[in-house]
């Protein structure tokens, strides 16, 4: 009797599966709207409205026109700050990439125990406040800081070096703060590459190095691009770290905008600066994505 029931079972299962599949295909429209409503409202009231008001405000002071933008272009100071912002963001991205890629690769490939330890080392800074981490750099780099004391005691230098409030310090501190945003996407990409692809490359005659350059690296590029984009965009708008470690001579856009809103209370000009930063960022992102989508091989991978 048991046998008869097993024979009858498969068709019933098949019908059940089909029914379940159609349920799973999608939520109803109402439910979908309800689920995304909180996010949409938050975006609208918390982001689009105030930012829009700030941007539009820049066009109406003192009266309608591009006066604020003209002011921005007239003074070389502001353009220098904009350029410096991009330079530093670029430097931070490159530095993060070179430091981050090996770490991400190790996280994905090390034996589980070591990988877990590395992951913790990457994530703990991420869970610590940016402010604390930036102050930590001040402790290290200031005139009487740990680094100078050490070098003086070793007798390698006679005068304390000027380490803090330099562009180098800003790049170093920002790289440190933004490194996890580079590592995590690359880690995800490397981790997602099936182990067999590496083995296949070795089996087909590739040494360890060429297996990396020809297989692992190209396949991890989507993660590299995501990491670079994220780090670059975050670096463009970074406020706390450059403000603390950088000082007045390495002012960046975010610090400048902050000054306009909190110190000079020139909201219209802050709006103009924000518009320029936002436009530059968007242009960059769109150009970046366009380049990627033109490349067929990567389109296939991503």
């Amino acid at each position: 009797m048991t046998v008869t029931s097993t024979i009858a079972a498969p068709p019933i299962n098949a019908i059940n599966n089909r029914a379940r599949a159609s349920y799973a295909r999608g939520y109803s429209k109402t439910l979908s709207l309800m689920l995304i409503a909180p996010l949409v409202l938050l975006m609208g009231f918390g982001f689009l409205y105030p930012v829009g008001k700030l941007l539009i405000g820049s066009l109406f002071a003192p009266e309608f026109g591009l006066e604020q933008f003209r002011r921005l272009i007239r003074s070389p100071l502001y353009l220098t700050v904009l350029l410096r912002t991009f330079e530093i963001a670029f430097a931070v991205t490159i530095a993060s990439l070179f430091i981050g890629y090996p770490i991400a690769f190790a996280m994905a490939k090390l034996p589980r125990r070591w990988a877990a330890l590395t992951t913790v080392c990457v994530l703990i800074p991420l869970w610590t406040s940016t402010l604390v981490r930036s102050y930590a750099w001040i402790v290290l780099l200031q005139r009487k800081g740990v680094v100078n004391e050490l070098l003086l005691n070793l007798g390698w230098i006679t005068q304390p070096l000027r380490l803090i409030y330099t562009e180098g310090a800003v790049i170093m501190a920002m790289t440190h703060v933004l490194l996890p945003y580079m590592i995590l996407p690359i880690f995800a990409a490397v981790h997602a590459i099936p182990k067999e692809l590496g083995q296949a490359a070795r089996n087909l005659g590739a040494g360890g190095t060429s297996a990396f350059w020809r297989i692992m690296l190209p396949l991890s590029l989507p993660g590299v691009f995501a990491g670079c984009l994220m780090t670059f965009i975050l670096a463009l708008g970074f406020y706390v770290t450059p403000a603390l470690v950088g000082g007045p001579r390495t002012m960046l856009m975010a610090t400048l905008i902050g000054q306009q809103t909190t110190e000079t209370l020139d909201w219209a000009f802050a709006g103009a600066l924000s518009t320029v930063l936002l436009a530059a960022t968007l242009t960059f992102v769109i150009a970046f994505r366009k380049t990627l989508s033109l490349n067929r091989g990567f389109a296939g991978v991503a």
């Binding site: 099936p194 067999e196 692809l197 083995q199 296949a200 490359a201 070795r202 089996n203 087909l204 005659g205 590739a206 040494g207 297989i215 190209p218 396949l219 091989g297 990567f298 296939g300 991978v301």
Partner: peptide, 21 residues
């Protein structure tokens, strides 16, 4: 011997074709 020096071909369970080629 290292896998790339063995002259032993292999077909993997999930083929392991390189997706970017």
């Amino acid at each position: 011997l290292a896998p790339n020096r063995r002259a032993v071909g292999m077909v993997f369970q999930k083929y392991a074709l390189f997706p970017h080629m």
